[in-house]
Each structure stands twice: as C-alpha cells, then as structure tokens.
Design a protein around this nucleic acid. Sequence first.
DNA 1: GTGCGACATTGCCCTAGGGGAAGGGTCAAG
DNA 2: CTTGACCCTTCCCCTAGGGCAATGTCGCAC
Lengths: 246, 246
Amino acid sequence: MITIGELARYVGVSTKTIRVYHDKGLLPEPPRDESGYRRYSAQDLVDLVKVRTLAEAGLPLATIARLSAGSPAELQDAASAAVTELTARIERLTATLSRLQRLAAGNSPFLPPEVEQHLLRLHDLGFSDRWVALERDLWILTFATYPDTARRYFADQSEAQNDPELRRLYLEYDHAHDLDPADPALADLADRIVTASLARYPTTDLNEPPDDLATLPQLVQSSINESSPAWKRLDTLIRHGLRTRR
Amino acid sequence: MITIGELARYVGVSTKTIRVYHDKGLLPEPPRDESGYRRYSAQDLVDLVKVRTLAEAGLPLATIARLSAGSPAELQDAASAAVTELTARIERLTATLSRLQRLAAGNSPFLPPEVEQHLLRLHDLGFSDRWVALERDLWILTFATYPDTARRYFADQSEAQNDPELRRLYLEYDHAHDLDPADPALADLADRIVTASLARYPTTDLNEPPDDLATLPQLVQSSINESSPAWKRLDTLIRHGLRTRR
DNA sequence: GTGCGACATTGCCCTAGGGGAAGGGTCAAG
DNA sequence: CTTGACCCTTCCCCTAGGGCAATGTCGCAC
C-alpha cells in the first residue's frame, strides 16, 4: 500500500498529475489511511500506466475518462486509432529533428546541402549577393512546399549552370538590375533569353510548373520586380516573348 | 507578397498561430496592403519555419522569442540542446507506442509476452487464481520500474519453476492461504523453503535486490500478508529462518 | 451593381494539462 | 522534540493556441 509520492515516482509523473486524474474521474480515489493519506495498490499502478500511455499518445483526458468507464473493446479501438496517429506524430517529429539538426549546425533549416553548395558556387561565378539571396528565397519556398518537385527542378537548374551560354545570360540578367528600364539593351537581352529558353525547353514540359507550384515563382518574381524597375521590364519582355514565339 | 492564409498553408499552421507569433514578438509584423491585410515575403516564410521547428521541438515560445532576438550562436546552442531533448522525447514516444500497441491488442500494457506465458503456465500447474494475480502484480510493478533488472529476475524465476522440488514448495505456499496461522505445518513448510532457498542462492547475490527495488517485493508482500494471516505467519517464519541460518 | 463565398481584421473568452504557492497536518530519524 | 520530507486541500496562474463574433474586402458570376 504505497503513498501517492511513491506511485508517482514509479510511473514517472508528479503527485499533482495523479490528483488531477482523480478529480477528472480517470482514476478511482483509493482508500485513505488513518491520517487521510491516499493508499495505492499494485492495481492502481496498472491503471495509472494505462491512463498515462493513452495520455502520452495525445488523447484528451476527457476521452480517456470515457474509455476507462466503457468496454474493453472500445478501448482497443481507440488504442489502435491512437497507434496510427502516434506513429504519424513520431514521423513528423523525426522530420522536425532533422530540420533542428540543420539549425544546430548553423545552416538554414530546409535547404539540402547540395543547394547550399549551388548557391555558394553562384557567388563564385560572379553573381551578385542580391541575386544569390533571391534565388535562395526561391529554393526555400519551393523546398518548403513541395520537396519532391523541388528536387527535380533543382537538378535541372543546377545542370543549366554548366552551360556557359546560359550562365552568361543569367549573369547579364543579374547585372541588368541598375539599368534604366528604357534601355534598349533590355529588349536585346530578353530576346536572347527567350531564344535560349525555347531551345532548352522546346515543349511546355518542365518549364510550366504544376498549378500548386505556379504561385511560388510569381511570389519570388514579384519581390524581384519590386527591387528593380529594369528587372520588372525584363520580366515583362520575357513573358511576352515566350507567349508570342512558342 | 502572400497573405496570411497562404503563408499558413505553406507552412502547415493556422492563421491564428501566425497572429499569436506576431503578438508574442516571435515574428515581425509584416507591412500591410491598402486594405490593412498583412503581406508576407519569402523571408517571412523562412523565419516562420525556423520558429515552428523550434516550437515543434518543444521550446517555449518565450524562449524562441529571446533566441530570435539574440545572436545566431545562442540559437545554435539552444538548437543542439533541443536536438538531444527531442531525441529523448522521440524515444519515450516510441516506448509509449509499443505500450499502446499492446493495449490495442488487448494485452496488459507492460508485461512482455513471455511473462504472460509464464503466468498462464502457473495456472495450468495448479496455482490458484489468487496466487497468479499476486505474482502478476509483482511482475507488473517490477517491469514498470526497472525493466532491465526485471528481465534478469524473471529469467531466474521462470527457471525455478522447472525444478519440481521448488515448484512443489511454491504450490504448498499457495495452498497454505487458508490454514490457521498457528498450524505447525506452517513452521515445517517455512523450514523446507528456507533450506531450498539457501541451496539455490548460497550467496546473497541474486536474492537481495538492489535498494531501489527492495520496496517492491515489500509492497506486494504486504498486500499478500493482508489477504491471509497464514501467509503473514509464513512470511515471518521464512524471514527469520533466512536471517538466522545464513 | 448585386450577391456570394472565401478571405481578412480585431477582440474576447475558453480549454487542456498541469505548475506552484499558501496554509496546514503527519511521520520517521537523530 | 525538532527537522526534513511527506501528505492534505484550495486557489490562482500559465502556455499555446481554438472558437466565435462583428465587421471589412476580394474576386467572380449574374
């Protein structure tokens, strides 16, 4: 016949928790000794562990109370439902853990290392910090929302960087940031970009993202455009060129 | 420039959550558009995912607020601390999961199957329901508190059941339940049990449990003793015999 | 332009699962 | 016979949001 404190230590909860469970009807109040102390039996320990197991699995205490009063069959059903839910929760936590580890290592919590690599290389190739930051944003958004699709896109994009012709075009895009929006060089650049784009993506295949993903480039593009009237103009010219020449 | 709802969907939280984070200073309030709606950038998404990663890892929001304002080094430290803690939590949840699975299967949430086996066999060997129930309680307590030690003890005990001599003694113990406490058969039985015990455990090795565990048999023994004056007498006689004859 | 459904705003109250302190009694050891 | 470690109840507090109300706004259909 153990006291509340001993029971609590055995099960690994606080005495307060046990009293709360009594109040909420999750556990029967045990008999008291002469001085009014609660005295628990081994069966109470069994019951408490059962309740804790369900509570740790995330079931609301009210549900557990209903279950303890109900039939064992109901409890089994609820338990199997909780099993699948808890399994999912553990998986989510594992994903959180890996993000957390990247955070602890000082990295951004979602970009895979190869993307960070790619961004570093951009810098070395002469792209401006601004450009790298924007591309970074784009990848973050993409990976945060559709990791699988993102991986495909990234493979394509990082391969594109190996084509010196394309690379030069991207660099020109980058450096056009401070041009006058009316500069005729913009129209020329847009024209060459459209040509290269159509050569690389003859069909609409990889170029047109699925609907869900379509808003992401838009989002990033809009923040790009806001930072420079020249880029905004360039974007307009390119879109127009792609529409009319496809 | 996305709205709060879009941001929420990207990250997988409710809009309410985002507003709460603004209120608590976890995230800066973004600029508003003409109609007063909040408008978020990609950077806000990055920040939000960072916050959520820490929050899902179990850090209090107040801590996260401090961290976001502090240096990256502090954040990294906190993140690595959180990594170890989250790892532990996942382990605990995995243990909970296995208990939950046993619960879903209709079994007691802590006894390993071989112990259940053992208890069933006891019944077949002629032990009373009362005895089996008591022994069950003992194992439950032991496994609930010190699973590793419990496994060692159980291996020893279940092996003891294979010795027909010992088995007969345990059976006699069981059946002594309803004897008169003054019955001389009790003294005789106690004597034979002491002899067998000393033969099986010549040193104090396995017989004396570690301090932590010592209270458990006591707990069970006390409930045993309460159920029968004869058993209580037997317990006293055995303890005395072990003390004097060792 | 009128209506409609989906979205946004603030504000206020509600809840779960306890934590912690107040104010008091009890028990065992030195 | 005091001291430290328990126990008792009651009360208020906290976190991390959820829910609801009252109101304003978007974009699309008619």
